[in-house]
Design a protein around this nucleic acid. Structure first.
Length: 533
RNA sequence: GGCGGCGUACCCAAGUGGUAAGGGAGAGGUCUGCAAAACCUCGAUGCGUCGGUUCGAAUCCGACCGCCGCCUCCA
């Protein structure tokens, strides 16, 4: 059995995950800057983070997950000039920065929920948490921690104070642990000096702000040892990862675009402050790309968001399914046709599951399932190869279903394994398939979406039914009422068909369709299947 | 200019030295009053092009073509 392996940007090879203090894994993810809705490219990153966390947990580790929320300090230009992103939106919308941040945080959480992305709990007001703990933490709640880190950086000789702010001295941060370790690109190779304006206070154009001073029109300001001002963007990640997870963390994630600047700067800040290695494994996800393979980005102006999926009538979970169909390190193309294909794929799998007899969920898994369990884990542990893992899931479901419909040796007992897969891929297949299936009211016999009229109750489907638990009828009462209506009609249609009144039967089928139900006649037996559209 | 990535069937996408996963769409078949669903079968002798290494390459090397990203904010 393979151990969990992941590509480490620091070494550029796929390595076995060996956390510093097993079974704990400390995991810091760069989170959203809350000034606009997160687009689907952003959401792909969070699906990746969530799936990675689930996969690591699947391997028996206990993950301490911290995600930051940037609600101050992220400039529209990284040269510490420009405008604070949150304040820009605040001015545009006539709101306070806090209102803007709160609004988009709520939206971010709602979008994550639609994709079944589990976020860490909101940070508790703790100072130095011990042991490391999971947290969703806001930059503005952690300014004192940032100031403390900046003080350490200065004390160790890597920061200097000027009238316009406190800067990190990249020239001092040289050698094998210096700048360029992640990006493998020396500062000399970069042309920032020629292309960017920079403050005359900086010793080097590559120096970046730790704390910004004397920007009186900036709305968010804090007192500091150097005067009133606000933190630079990169410092929040250094400060919060250290505060919640310790000086050396196991995994740090982010988009590919963060490699050259943001993460490079984080390493410099964190290691110069603490004197210890910052991160064991850096992991970076590739982009979602648009029609011409071009990156979807906020600055491009127009970008799809979760709400657009809903508008298009696509279950947001289909987007998660799509993300899983590719490897996180590969660019993934996105347009309406592609997400539609993913939605079809997901919906077919769920329909197959809806057809599997309900009662089989109660049983132990069949022996043949073991092979799929191994293949699933191996795929997952091979640098999070979700594309292969998903194909294993689909093959298993198909086989179980094929056994039911086509073969005498039917054996659909896969539910325990399926649930363990679900916990990793984060798509609630069982729930989705339950939602599809129509269960008739308690007084009517039905069977796992394959409804069997009462007078045929001598067959195997109905026998299984007598032992089913009552719990399945809990849920939305209005839905149950509608289902009872649909079931009565379907039953009526079934009787009409038996006396060959096909015209009337077809009319009922159309009524049902218009009412949101699909009725299908099953060939092998005088039965029918009723499901929600 | 520097650094990096990609190019696999109609579309999306795994595979990175041993003879092309999976999904979507499509075609044929079985079944069926019809429809739908399901099941079966068929879809790249070939993985941008041209060379090279090798018993053997989509996978390694070289050249070329095309697309994209980063070095400005960005997942």
């Amino acid at each position: 059995m393979k151990p969990f392996q992941i590509f480490n940007t620091l070494t550029r090879i796929v390595e076995e995950l060996r956390p510093g203090h097993p079974p704990d894994v400390t995991f810091y993810s760069c989170g959203p800057t809350v000034y606009l809705p997160q687009h689907l490219g952003n959401m792909r990153a969070y699906v990746f983070v969530d799936t990675l966390r689930r996969a690591i947990e699947f391997n028996g580790f206990r993950v301490r997950h911290v995600m930051n929320i940037t609600d101050v300090g992220h400039m529209t230009s990284d040269e510490d000039a420009g405008e604070d992103k949150i304040e820009k939106t605040a001015r545009a919308e006539g709101k306070s920065p806090l209102e803007v941040a709160n609004f988009y945080i709520a939206q971010f959480k709602a979008d994550c929920a639609k994709l079944n992305i589990e976020l860490p709990p909101d940070a508790a007001p703790l100072d130095e948490p011990h042991p490391p703990q999971s947290a969703l933490c806001r930059a503005t709640d952690n300014v004192p921690a940032m100031i403390a880190v900046i003080e350490q950086i200065i004390a160790h000789g890597y920061g200097y104070v000027t009238p316009s702010g406190v800067y990190f001295d990249v020239e001092k941060w040289r050698g094998p642990r210096g700048m360029g370790r992640l990006s493998r690109q020396s500062l000399d190779e970069q042309h920032a000096a020629q292309r960017l304006e920079h403050s005359a206070d900086k010793h080097s154009p590559h120096d970046f702000a730790l704390w910004v001073l004397n920007q009186p029109h900036h709305m968010m300001q804090w007192e500091s040892p150097w005067g009133r001002g606000y933190p630079g963007w990169h410092i929040e990640c250094s400060a919060m990862s250290m505060k919640y997870l310790g000086e050396t963390i196991d995994i740090h994630s982010g988009g590919l675009d963060h490699i050259p600047v943001h993460h490079e700067n984080e390493i410099a800040q964190s290691e110069s402050a603490s004197g210890h290695p910052f991160v064991r494994y850096f992991v970076h996800n590739a982009f979602l790309t648009g029609m011409a393979g071009a990156k979807i980005s906020k600055s491009a102006g127009k970008f799809p968001v979760v709400a657009d999926l809903v508008t298009a009538g696509i279950d947001p979970l289909a987007f998660r399914w799509l993300c899983l169909m590719a490897k996180y390190r590969s660019e993934l193309k996105f347009d309406l046709e592609i997400i539609g294909a993913a939605a079809n794929s997901l919906s077919r799998v769920c329909q197959l599951l809806a057809d599997l007899s309900f009662a089989t969920k109660q049983q132990n898994d069949s022996e043949w399932v073991a092979e799929y369990r191994d293949r699933f884990r191996d795929a997952l542990n091979d640098d999070l190869n979700t594309a292969q893992a998903l194909s294993v899931v689909i093959e298993m479901v198909r086989r179980a279903h094929g056994d039911v419909e086509g073969h005498p040796d039917r054996d659909p007992r896969i539910w325990n394994t399926l649930r363990s897969f679900e916990r990793v891929i984060g798509v609630p297949l069982e729930k989705l398939s339950d939602d599809l299936r129509v269960d008739a009211g308690p007084n009517i016999v039905s069977g796992g979406g394959v409804n069997t009229p009462m007078k045929l109750s001598g067959n195997a489907e109905a026998q299984v039914e007598s032992s089913s638990p009552k719990g399945r009828f809990q849920g939305d009462p209005s839905k149950q009422t509608a289902d009872a209506w649909a079931y009565a009609l379907a039953l009526e249609r079934h009787r009409l068909r038996e006396i060959k009144k096909f015209k009337e039967a077809d009319a009922i089928r159309k009524d049902l369709f218009d009412g949101g139900y699909i009725v299908e006649d099953i060939s092998e037996a005088p039965r029918f299947r009723l499901k929600r559209r």
